[in-house]
Simulated assay, not measured.
Amino acid sequence: MIRYALICDDDHEFEGWFGSSGDYDDQQARGLLECPVCDSRAVRKQIMAPAVAGTKRTLRDPGPAKMQAMMMEAAGRIRAHVEENFDDVGDAFASEARAIHEGRAEDRGIYGQASPKEVRDLIEDGVPVAPLPPEAPAKTELN
């Protein structure tokens, strides 16, 4: 196995493990490599020193502010994907989720609003639900 330090065109750094350098080249040529943060396919190898036994390696800590920004970006992408591809059923979420789970309604992705009690009841009955990430604050609301 070979580990490559990779970076996308948005400067998101990550690593990839490949069976050989040829595997990397093949996957890159077929467009199969993508950034886990932003899904960019403009991925390239970073310059890296060879791993030598007995040396200390230090990890680059992006820092709390950068980590928070990356998490907010990822959460925003999830929310946008749901809003673009799922049906908004509004405050009928609990009844529609239950109907889909029980086979009484078309199986599809939905989102909407439910009370805490409705969510607890759905979970207790085995209906898969998850909270939607919050909307990102407007830039004018940030400090």
Score class of each variant (00 low, 15 high):
residue 16 G to K: 14
residue 36 P to L: 05
residue 31 G to V: 05
residue 136 A to N: 03
residue 14 F to K: 07
residue 98 R to P: 01
residue 23 D to I: 09
residue 115 S to T: 15
residue 15 E to I: 11
residue 123 I to K: 13
residue 95 S to C: 08
residue 84 E to Y: 02
residue 51 A to L: 10
residue 40 S to N: 05
residue 83 E to V: 11
residue 82 V to N: 02
residue 115 S to P: 00
residue 66 K to T: 15
residue 56 K to F: 10
residue 118 E to Y: 03
residue 25 D to Q: 15
residue 45 K to N: 03
residue 71 M to E: 14
residue 63 G to M: 10
residue 22 G to C: 04
residue 50 P to N: 09
residue 37 V to R: 03
residue 65 A to Y: 12
residue 106 E to A: 14
residue 128 P to N: 04
residue 59 L to A: 13
residue 139 K to H: 01
residue 14 F to L: 09
residue 85 N to C: 01
residue 130 A to S: 07
residue 137 P to V: 06
residue 84 E to G: 05
residue 86 F to T: 06
residue 19 G to I: 12
residue 94 A to I: 10
residue 136 A to C: 00
residue 110 I to A: 14
residue 131 P to M: 00
residue 94 A to C: 05
residue 33 L to T: 01
residue 23 D to V: 10
residue 47 I to T: 14
residue 65 A to F: 09
residue 98 R to A: 07
residue 35 C to R: 04
residue 109 G to H: 11
residue 33 L to N: 00
residue 26 D to S: 07
residue 30 R to A: 13
residue 32 L to E: 14
residue 30 R to Q: 13
residue 118 E to G: 01
residue 32 L to I: 03
residue 81 H to Y: 11
residue 109 G to F: 11
residue 43 V to S: 07
residue 48 M to Q: 15
residue 2 I to Q: 13
residue 97 A to W: 04
residue 109 G to L: 11
residue 73 E to K: 06
residue 130 A to H: 00
residue 131 P to W: 02
residue 15 E to Q: 14
residue 56 K to I: 13
residue 97 A to Y: 07
residue 121 D to W: 03
residue 108 R to D: 12
residue 23 D to F: 04
residue 82 V to K: 04
residue 137 P to N: 02
residue 35 C to W: 03
residue 59 L to R: 14
residue 113 Q to R: 15
residue 100 I to H: 08
residue 98 R to Q: 15
residue 39 D to Q: 08
residue 101 H to E: 09
residue 128 P to M: 01
residue 19 G to M: 11
residue 77 R to I: 06
residue 16 G to M: 11
residue 34 E to T: 03
residue 10 D to Q: 15
residue 84 E to P: 02
residue 77 R to S: 07
residue 9 D to F: 08
residue 10 D to A: 15
residue 138 A to N: 05
residue 17 W to G: 07
residue 22 G to N: 12
residue 90 G to L: 06
residue 88 D to V: 02
residue 9 D to E: 09
residue 87 D to S: 10
residue 20 S to A: 10
residue 132 L to W: 04
residue 42 A to H: 08
residue 95 S to Q: 13
residue 107 D to V: 01
residue 12 H to Q: 13
residue 17 W to F: 12
residue 125 D to R: 08
residue 130 A to K: 05
residue 87 D to M: 13
residue 28 Q to P: 01
residue 39 D to L: 04
residue 86 F to K: 04
residue 14 F to D: 06
residue 121 D to C: 01
residue 51 A to P: 02
residue 90 G to M: 10
residue 135 E to Q: 12
residue 56 K to T: 14
residue 93 F to K: 02
residue 29 A to D: 14
residue 134 P to Y: 05
residue 13 E to C: 10
residue 34 E to Q: 11
residue 36 P to W: 01
residue 70 M to P: 02
residue 61 D to A: 12
residue 79 R to K: 05
residue 120 R to E: 13
residue 23 D to W: 05
residue 78 I to P: 07
residue 24 Y to T: 10
residue 78 I to E: 11
residue 55 T to D: 10
residue 124 E to D: 15
residue 22 G to Y: 03
residue 80 A to W: 04
residue 119 V to W: 03
residue 108 R to I: 01
residue 93 F to T: 02
residue 36 P to S: 01
residue 20 S to V: 08
residue 96 E to R: 10
residue 58 T to H: 08
residue 15 E to Y: 13
residue 22 G to V: 07
residue 94 A to N: 03
